[in-house]
Design a protein around this nucleic acid. Sequence first.
DNA 1: ATGAAAGCGCTAACAG
DNA 2: CTGTTAGCGCTTTCAT
Lengths: 347, 347
Amino acid sequence: MADVAAHVGVSRALVSLVFRDAPGASAATRERVFKAAAELGYRPNSAARVLRRNRSRHLGVLYTMRHPFDADLVEALYPLAERLGYDIVLGAMTPTRGEQKAAEELLSYRSEVLIVIGPEIGSKPLAALASHVPVIAVGRRFRGLNVDAIHTDDFQGVRLGVEHLVELGHRAIAHIDGGAMPGASGRRRGYRTTMRRHGLDDEIRVIPGDYTEESGARAAEALLSDSHLPTAVIAGNDRCAVGLLDSLLRAGISVPRQVSVIGYDDSQLARMSHINLTSVSQDVPHMAEAVMHAVVERLENGRSEAREIVLKPSLVVRETTGPVTPTAPSAPPLVESTNSGGGRTRS
Amino acid sequence: MADVAAHVGVSRALVSLVFRDAPGASAATRERVFKAAAELGYRPNSAARVLRRNRSRHLGVLYTMRHPFDADLVEALYPLAERLGYDIVLGAMTPTRGEQKAAEELLSYRSEVLIVIGPEIGSKPLAALASHVPVIAVGRRFRGLNVDAIHTDDFQGVRLGVEHLVELGHRAIAHIDGGAMPGASGRRRGYRTTMRRHGLDDEIRVIPGDYTEESGARAAEALLSDSHLPTAVIAGNDRCAVGLLDSLLRAGISVPRQVSVIGYDDSQLARMSHINLTSVSQDVPHMAEAVMHAVVERLENGRSEAREIVLKPSLVVRETTGPVTPTAPSAPPLVESTNSGGGRTRS
DNA sequence: ATGAAAGCGCTAACAG
DNA sequence: CTGTTAGCGCTTTCAT
């Protein structure tokens, strides 16, 4: 930076002003500074910048590379953060690198908040983190912790799914649950309660699973090796639904002719034309906005008590759900036609 | 840090030594320093550290969140980098955030190298980057640029696929290509050349595509609306193959009974039990090692000319390829059985 | 084994 | 509109 200043013949402070386009430099100067910087290949050193102001303006995001939903949310976060002058710093959680480690790293870069997507972390370590830095958990609620929670109403989400199926005439509706994964308990309760409300107590069937395609495939096996094949299944998330879907198709089961399938997340996976999965939408754009809202409140408005924001889910009906067909147990599979991201929405 | 030093009653320098476990502090002191740090919630500030030594020990990784292959590679990179004392800093490329922008950000954090996975970037901007910092491109070769290239032999990869199919008796083998995506041209040439070598000039059929599930689905439409359905298809990558697979299954086409399908990358997608895709393996662990090797050579051994490392691909045979069945055009779909990640390998 | 002091590149506060 | 100055938290000599 000193080089640039010397080259232009101004002070370093002025160059600094120009680069963070703060007021106080003439247009002519700005021009010359940028030109000199380009020539000299100067690039601001953000380590020095972070060190000097005592704010990094970094938002640490903990996410899982494999989850399409996480990618959706991160992508939605980028432009919003940029507009507010924040940088997103990614901390990937991988099999060899737990949340704890990833979080430590983000904190060493002085992230001002931690946005944890689909936290599988325990309460105690999370509480420890939250005592150092505001934590915003997306997709899971933490009672009694000073952690903001932003999630959709999982209970209502599954309720929408069950009611959609009931309207289509389904009664034998199974649920592949998400075990201890974020949101799973609410979804399970939504399933059980709504089934009961419709007098379908005897049809309640929860198949243990998680949020991977594998668990959907395993559930398919379980269902197929059983005499009692349900006419509809609500999976714990889209990945699980896709695993289920694929295994059913391979087994010659026609969807939705013989079995209707509903996913959860309405991730890009669900929208792909060859999947075209009816799914409960988490409304990612609104979630991203809610996250940034929480960030601003914490960082700029001095809020220090936890807040919970529950968003309303909606059901995006695509082509994996249809009316129950009492007869025709071995009808020929259906050929898909057109259709991209669309789908009717209801809430 | 001053707090910790004061608390223990030593100088800041000593605390510093302890934290980067450099020699020169007694075990007793180390103990006390760590204890005090834990009590005070001290965490080293990596901005200050980076600023002071003139090395960040950051490896910038540019990747695409949606590509399973990228996730595979990044996951493999983490432990290797850690062992060598480097930190990985992720730069995600999203629709709203091109390679250029992501790269700028990584450079502002003073990444010492840029590892670009599946670079879709143009030659000129890449050359500009490469003049500032060593660039290691994974999956694509750049002629005439000072950019290291690490990739598998795409030509040979597709050759393996074609020959596997030929051995199974296939002649009508189509290829969905990857357009201008990384590696696509080599794969296309491998397909064309190998087909010709086997006297299958007249069967050559390249369907335009890219590396997304959508393009696989589009290719399926194209194939189905045609009288001339091939008995086998080699897709440009696994995502494309999965899109194809799914659309074929939905159309009632049995795989591999009626059509065999081969993917490329052998990503986790291919290994999922319900997909079980025969795929050309890029051998991610070796690629990750090659990447780190290149990093070390550039950063520690002073290498400054570009190097190209071409790895041998191998074919992982799973259950989407099988012998050609001349008759039985409408055999009932096959029910999958067991099987997880395995698969026979040949190279 | 430990300490003192200088300085990395930048920004903020103030002066002109 | 532009310049001066001090110092962010750490590492690194060089002493002790």
